[in-house]
Computed example of a mutant assay.
Amino acid sequence: MNILTFDIEEWFHILDNASTKTEKEWSNYESRIHRNMETIFEILDKTSVKASFFVVGWMAQQYPDMVKEIVDRGYEIGSHTHLHQLVFEQKREEFKEDVGRSIKTLEDISGKKVRIFRAPGFSITEKNKWAFEVLYELGIETDSSVFPTGRAHGGMPSYGIAEPSVLCYNGVQLREFPINTHKVLGKTFIYSGGGYFRLTPYALLKKWTAKHPYVMSYIHPRDLDPGQPVIKELSIPRKLKSYVGLKYSKQKLEKWLTDFEFMDIETAEKEIDWNAVKKIEL
């Protein structure tokens, strides 16, 4: 089961960087979302693949036409929060207000219920599991925020598995689609989204995808935009992660979607027997 998702945000929505952190800083940068959405739609049309779109509410507010086109093309939209902030830096009420705002914005524009969610940077960690309670309170049914290994933004190694499952926390249950992992000599690798996708040679991407029964992709519009400016304030390692591999990423994604069968979250949910999957108690 290979699932295709896109996290819809601007090229400058880079976390953990002061020069791109808030709305105030965002006004300093040009928008590239429309040209990048055209690239995404071109790829999907060419490969005839359905995808799920996690949209930042601020983006929907700025560009409601973009949300309408996603929905008119038959794709499901979900929340990627409203202001694209790290969840572990927020208090519970702040997070609830932000996600609730994003859901209302997306629903008002699309006329569709928002029932899926992904946290920016997969920033629901061991220390802020209360976020799952908030999502449930807001009507979210399916989550894809669990990064079941360590990472710069924390991750959640205790989750233990990288497969569709039922997440249980304080009496709350959500369908969970965590990010998939691959182990080489005992070390855990991520390869199916963002900078990991761009940095992984296609031969390895193909080999690892064929090996695993479950792959959750997460592609950002900026991952397909070789013409985007370089944010000078980023450290050298962050520049490497943000810009290497952009030149051929569009062709890589097209080949990946051609070599393997992909589906959206809604289709995947229908194919899964949720009574038979593992329940993970956090």
Rank of each mutant, 00 (worst) to 15 (best):
Arg35Ile: 14
Arg35Pro: 05
Arg35Tyr: 06
Asn36Pro: 00
Asn36Leu: 01
Asn36Cys: 05
Met37Trp: 08
Met37Gly: 01
Met37Leu: 15
Met37Val: 03
Met37Ser: 01
Glu38Pro: 06
Glu38Asn: 14
Glu38His: 15
Glu38Ile: 12
Thr39Asn: 04
Thr39Trp: 04
Thr39His: 05
Thr39Gln: 04
Ile40Met: 08
Phe41Lys: 08
Phe41Thr: 11
Phe41Leu: 10
Glu42Cys: 11
Glu42Ser: 14
Glu42Ile: 10
Glu42Pro: 10
Ile43His: 11
Ile43Glu: 10
Ile43Tyr: 10
Ile43Gly: 12
Ile43Gln: 11
Ile43Lys: 09
Ile43Ser: 08
Ile43Leu: 08
Leu44Pro: 11
Leu44Cys: 14
Asp45Val: 07
Lys46Ser: 15
Lys46Ile: 09
Thr47Asn: 06
Thr47Glu: 08
Thr47Ser: 09
Thr47Arg: 07
Ser48Cys: 13
Ser48Asn: 15
Val49Arg: 01
Val49Lys: 05
Val49Trp: 08
Val49Leu: 03
Val49Ile: 13
Lys50Asn: 14
Lys50Gly: 02
Ala51Cys: 06
Ala51Ser: 08
Ala51Arg: 04
Ala51Pro: 07
Ala51Thr: 00
Ala51Lys: 02
Ser52Leu: 10
Ser52Arg: 10
Phe53Ser: 01
Phe53Ile: 00
Phe53Asp: 00
Phe53Val: 02
Phe53Gly: 01
Phe54Ile: 04
Phe54Cys: 03
Phe54Ala: 04
Phe54Thr: 06
Val55Leu: 00
Val56Met: 02
Val56Thr: 04
Val56Cys: 02
Val56Gly: 01
Gly57His: 03
Gly57Cys: 03
Trp58Leu: 08
Trp58Thr: 03
Trp58Asn: 01
Met59Tyr: 04
Met59Arg: 09
Met59His: 04
Met59Pro: 00
Ala60Gln: 03
Ala60Met: 00
Ala60Glu: 01
Ala60Asp: 02
Gln61Glu: 15
Gln61Trp: 12
Gln61Lys: 11
Gln61His: 13
Gln62Arg: 13
Gln62Ser: 10
Gln62Tyr: 11
Gln62Val: 09
Gln62Lys: 13
Tyr63Lys: 14
Tyr63Val: 08
Tyr63Trp: 12
Tyr63Arg: 15
Pro64Ala: 09
Pro64Gly: 01
Pro64Asn: 06
Asp65Tyr: 03
Asp65Gln: 12
Asp65Ala: 07
Asp65Leu: 02
Met66Arg: 07
Met66Phe: 06
Met66Cys: 02
Val67His: 04
Val67Pro: 04
Val67Gln: 00
Lys68Gln: 14
Lys68Ile: 09
Lys68His: 07
Lys68Cys: 11
Lys68Arg: 15
Lys68Ala: 08
Glu69Ala: 03
Glu69Ile: 07
Glu69Phe: 06
Glu69Gly: 10
Ile70Arg: 00
Ile70Leu: 04
Ile70Gly: 04
Ile70Val: 09
Val71Gln: 07
Val71Gly: 00
Val71Pro: 03
Val71Glu: 05
Asp72His: 11
Asp72Phe: 12
Asp72Arg: 12
Asp72Ser: 14
Asp72Gln: 13
Arg73Pro: 11
Gly74Lys: 08
Gly74Glu: 14
Gly74Val: 15
Gly74Trp: 13
Gly74Met: 14
Gly74Tyr: 11
Gly74Leu: 14
